[in-house]
Amino acid sequence: MNFKALFPPLPGVTATGAALFLEPIMGSGERLCVGLAAVLADNTYRVAPVLRRETARCLVGEKADSLLGLMQVGLDSLDSHLERGENLASWTPPMQGLTLGPLAQGHVEDLPMMLRAMARNHAFLATLAAFDATEQGEPSSDDEAEADIEWLKRVRHAVQTRRPALDGHFGRRIKLRNVRGETRIDYFGSRLAAQLCRLTPGASISRHVRTAKSKLWDLEALRDIGTDGVFRPASYELLIYRPRDDDPSYSERQIARLHDALSELEAAGDRQQLRVRPVQTVNDAASRIIEAEAA
């Protein structure tokens, strides 16, 4: 009997992966999985964080930035190592407290599949929320509002670092012509008016969509009604953060829902003749603002 015929064929892509561990207290022996790396046979690779800012703040409070900074040192070093075409096993940690776990090999369909498999096997914190069969309880509105504010602060800081003169255009309150009250515009420059928001998978994604649509309406009003002044920017855009498709913190089902929500927002933007521009990092958003103002 051909026993192989009884089993489905293995996926055709061979991958090697490893987890990145951080020892928060030097010499304690306690390790936390903070990142993942996966490499395909053709040297295509991906390095991804596991520890998210919200989780880090729950763990260590005000020391979250320090913890995330140490994680990023390891991720950046791994990324540079693999970008040079080096073998994953030959990576040398740039500092004490960072270590690479045992290498694992498997047959997968693509890099995201390998990253998710590694997360399930090594990353307790990622597994808590990202790979459950059902959605977790919805985060509180206070937590979401704080995360939105933090995202805007980080983009503003990135722009201010590269173009200090643009800092004054953030957090503007605009008086629309013949409209009571003021409208808050996250960025109102000489050539670009932009609202910034986030779209992350999970139980709060519907709230993110509502917030994004509200910001689109504000942009539409700003463009069509105008301000008490004569000045109008040339471009009106919604810069919306979205995680990468291969982010191991989210399941395939959550990423699929993210795509649906993003398509819904892009369709809404098209109807209002407004640009919905997805960004995946703080630097992506900052670069778009700087580029628009330099045009």
Results as ranks from 00 to 15, higher is better:
Asn87Tyr: 12
Arg172Cys: 13
Glu135Gly: 05
Leu98Gly: 04
Lys215Thr: 03
Gly171Ile: 03
Ala292Phe: 06
Gln105Trp: 02
Gly74Asp: 07
Ile255Ser: 07
Phe3Met: 11
Leu51Lys: 01
Gln195Leu: 02
Lys153Val: 01
Asp167Leu: 10
Asp228Met: 09
Ala212Gly: 08
Leu78Pro: 02
Thr134Leu: 11
Asp42Pro: 01
Ser28Phe: 03
Ile149Val: 14
Leu6Lys: 11
Asp224Asn: 09
Arg271Trp: 09
Ser141Leu: 12
Arg244Met: 08
Ser28Asn: 07
Tyr45Ser: 15
Pro93Tyr: 09
Arg257Pro: 01
Leu125His: 05
Ala117Ser: 08
Met71Thr: 00
Pro9Thr: 15
Asn178Asp: 15
Asn178Val: 08
Asp246Pro: 03
Leu258Tyr: 05
Gln160Ala: 15
Val50Gln: 00
Glu220Gly: 10
Ala295Pro: 04
Ala292Cys: 12
Ala123Ser: 09
Thr134Val: 13
Ser90Met: 07
Leu70Cys: 13
Ser263Met: 11
Phe170Tyr: 13
Glu266Tyr: 03
Ile149Ser: 03
Asp260Ala: 13
Asn283Pro: 00
Leu192His: 02
Gly171Gln: 15
Glu293Met: 11
Leu98Asn: 02
Gly226Leu: 04
Arg275Ala: 12
Gln96Met: 12
Pro93Leu: 03
Pro8Gly: 13
Leu258Pro: 00
Asp167Arg: 13
Lys4Leu: 11
Pro49Leu: 04
Ala268Arg: 06
Arg156Ile: 08
Phe170Gly: 02
Glu109Ser: 11
Met71Val: 01
Ile185Tyr: 08
Pro102Cys: 10
Ser249Lys: 06
Ser204Gly: 02
Gly101Trp: 00
Pro201Gly: 05
Gln136Phe: 05
Arg271Val: 08
Arg31Tyr: 10
Ala194Phe: 01
Glu237Val: 10
Leu239Ser: 01
Ala294Thr: 13
Leu216Phe: 02
Tyr236Asn: 03
Leu115Trp: 04
Ala15Tyr: 06
Leu98Phe: 04
Leu166Tyr: 14
Glu30Ala: 13
Arg116Phe: 00
Arg257Asn: 12
Glu23Val: 00
Ala15Asp: 06
Gly69Trp: 01
Ala193Leu: 04
Gly168Ser: 14
Leu176Met: 12
Ala19Tyr: 03
Leu238Glu: 05
Arg207Tyr: 08
Asp218Pro: 00
Ser214Lys: 08
Arg156Asp: 04
